[in-house]
Write a protein that binds this DNA or RNA. Structure first.
Lengths: 214, 214
DNA sequence: TAGATTGTTAATCGATTAACAATC
DNA sequence: TAGATTGTTAATCGATTAACAATC
């Protein structure tokens, strides 16, 4: 099986999202140029990306939305629902737990964790909640693959270590902490708002300078 | 002024964060290789990135942390605090509003918006809150540069349009919606959890295949 | 069929890595 | 000074763009 470069994986995921939306709107087919303009890349790029997939039927009238959707799902293993958890049940963490049922058929939030046992006892949710020291054991038992990390900065690295010990392979890190990961089969996606605001701020500034230069 | 490529801007922002942490720990200097290993890139890369800055003093014993920090802040305009706002005061939005004081000296959340006037009246926060129809006017009046978007998917595009009308240049989009932006001096950072979980899921899957191939 | 759109190869572009002389 | 580390040029690598023949 061919290895797919990260930027391509990313775009195919975005295409998948678009296809879902288009399907919901009742569309049947879509062309590479339509996808391209919506995503802000050239149609060449889209076609190149799609060429990484198997079993895509196409022709003179674009792609069949359902067929393309399935091809991506099949390539990336989206058909079988994956177990996820939330670590850190503060305001944001709890919000995610309660959103749990909103989440697509691809993922299911099966556990919440917090180091504060009082909070665990008082929290009201349909999802089971556990104390932080049970992270590794529970993650392994429930076969949790992905974790949403919403603990305070100081607790982030420890929680990440426990998750990885429990076999978790992907972490969505809402913490401002730069997690140190030893295993190279574990992926982290940083979502810290401060960092992203800073990045936007820098982009805006650099863009202004470009405009002045022009 | 030289134009800096996006990946470089991103890494410099990450370096800035690391420098802050190191400074808080009382360190005085840091080498390109230390920064490189922490960020997972080669020391060459770090030095190349830093060469985009002005006024960095260095020598045989690495970089002066304060000096480097200032050089980045100066390049990207981090010295002057920027106004930000939160649009959509559901659970997550409110959490950000209340975090407001935690946020660095670089940013200050000066307003919250929601279309539900009942919610606006009952919400308890030190930050002023306004109805959604006042987004453009208020953003312009308070010179808001960056917005955190936490509205329901269906309201996302409309809110984004109002923000852009009000002169906002950066949007942190917590919505699952792919925002359509016409102006090319407006930057969007997508933070939708579903999409990121999907991306992680795909990376994990592809990685497994790689391992098998090896 | 004819028209539109894809698939794929080749060319360009840009970013990362390597190496080594210059610097503190 | 000597040692360590940077700054910068050149080489490699990979991704994007272009173009056009193949396809439905």
């Amino acid at each position: 099986m061919e290895k797919i470069p990260q930027p391509v994986i990313k775009r195919l995921c975005m295409i998948y999202q678009l296809l879902n939306e288009m399907f919901d709107k009742g569309h049947m087919t879509v062309s590479s140029s339509e996808l391209g303009t919506t995503l802000g890349v050239g149609s060449h790029n889209i076609r190149k990306d799609i060429s990484c997939l198997d079993g895509v039927k196409s022709g003179g009238s674009g792609y069949d939305i359902v067929n393309l959707k399935n091809a991506i799902a099949q390539k990336f293993g989206f058909e079988n629902q994956k177990a996820a958890c939330v670590v850190g049940l503060g305001r944001i963490g709890t919000a995610f737990l309660e959103h749990a049922h909103n989440i697509t058929s691809e993922f299911r939030i099966v556990a919440g964790f917090d180091s504060n046992t009082n909070r665990i006892e008082t929290i009201k949710t349909s999802v089971s909640v556990y104390p932080a020291y049970q992270i590794s054991e529970t993650a392994r038992r429930l076969n949790i693959q992905i974790a949403i990390l919403t603990v305070p900065n100081t607790a982030a690295q420890d929680a990440a270590n426990r998750l990885i010990d429990g076999g978790v392979k992907g972490i969505i890190n809402f913490t401002d902490t730069n997690l140190v990961i030893r295993k190279d089969d574990v992926f982290v996606k940083n979502m810290d708002v401060t960092g992203e605001m800073r990045m936007l701020s820098a982009l805006i500034r650099m863009d202004m300078n470009n405009s002045i230069t022009m």
